[in-house]
Design a binder for these strands. Structure first.
Length: 264
DNA sequence: AACACGACCTGGTAGC
DNA sequence: TGCTACCAGGTCGTGT
């Protein structure tokens, strides 16, 4: 699930529903999620303190607590944060629970258990530019891009350059801009980079909206995804624009989906 | 600096 | 039914 849009939706939800609430205690059910830190130390840091602020940095979530501690959560491949009560939680895979006052709570749900929950101590993550901030201008994007010779898809997924795009939205942005994922990013014309910049912002904004809605209406997810994804996961199916068959290839060990007709 | 690949984990699905 | 193989939204460490 989590690329930037899903993480942003999670953060918005937490701000609305849980910011300002008192955390009575944190319960870590799967100790390996805190490695190499000690789970007891993190539980202790979350004992009886208020959740002051929820911050997103790229795909990282930072929970600022009133006692000064900062919890750093990364959802990785399958993580999610749900607010109690939520029917989805009945199927287990719950790795940690922030118990709030009353019957509320924040549940760290993660079937694959690759996600992490740690105390942010010395080194907070310093990712690349967040495409949803005003700093992400076409000019800045071009200057970053011109310095790299990476294939466009790998450049977009490099979190040290841009932070937030993952396998789905990198592919979707390239489709929207009509760019072949293998093309060296630095070789693209300014005009095409400008189009790509707009595509990135557009794809992410649409997806944030959709991800946010899917919280209140889980059924929305499937419907919206089916309509909105143009290439991701559609190998063998016809391109919605030109009808040619969508292809799959491997880049950086990950699947890339693209239309050879629309993306040149 | 760029790339490939394995590791970290679990679960779903296709194929035999 | 049950086995095997492969696939999955992310990142990190290691080796070439």
């Amino acid at each position: 699930m989590p690329e930037l849009p899903e993480v942003e939706a999670v953060c918005r939800r937490l701000r609305e529903e849980a910011a300002g609430e008192k955390i009575v205690k944190l319960e870590i059910l799967r100790p390996s999620i805190t490695k190499p830190q000690n789970p007891e130390a993190i539980e202790a840091a979350c004992h009886n303190t208020n959740l002051k602020q929820v911050e997103r940095r790229g795909k990282n979530i930072l929970l600022h607590l009133a006692n000064g501690a900062v919890i750093h959560i990364h959802l990785r491949m399958t993580g999610n944060l749900y607010l109690i009560p939520d029917r989805r939680l009945l199927t287990s895979a719950v790795r940690a629970v922030f118990h709030l006052r009353g019957h509320k709570g924040i549940v760290f749900y993660d079937p694959r258990a690759l996600g992490t929950l740690r105390l942010a101590t010395d080194s907070l993550p310093e990712p690349g530019i967040d495409p949803l901030t005003p700093n992400f201008t076409p000019a800045l994007f071009q200057s970053l891009a011109k310095k790299s010779r990476k294939p466009a898809k790998l450049f977009l997924m490099d979190q040290d350059k841009l932070s937030g795009l993952g396998n789905i939205y990198a592919a979707e942005a390239l489709f929207r801009a009509g760019i072949d994922p293998r093309k060296s990013i630095g070789q693209l014309s300014s005009r095409r980079l400008t189009a790509l910049h707009a595509a990135i912002v557009g794809v992410l904004k649409d997806a944030v909206h959709s991800a946010y809605l899917s919280y209140s209406d889980p059924g929305h997810m499937l419907a919206a995804e089916e309509e909105s994804l143009m290439v991701y996961g559609r190998a063998g199916e016809p391109c919605r624009t030109c009808g040619r068959i969508i292809r799959r290839m491997i880049q950086g060990g990950r699947s890339t989906f693209y239309c050879a007709e629309c993306q040149t």
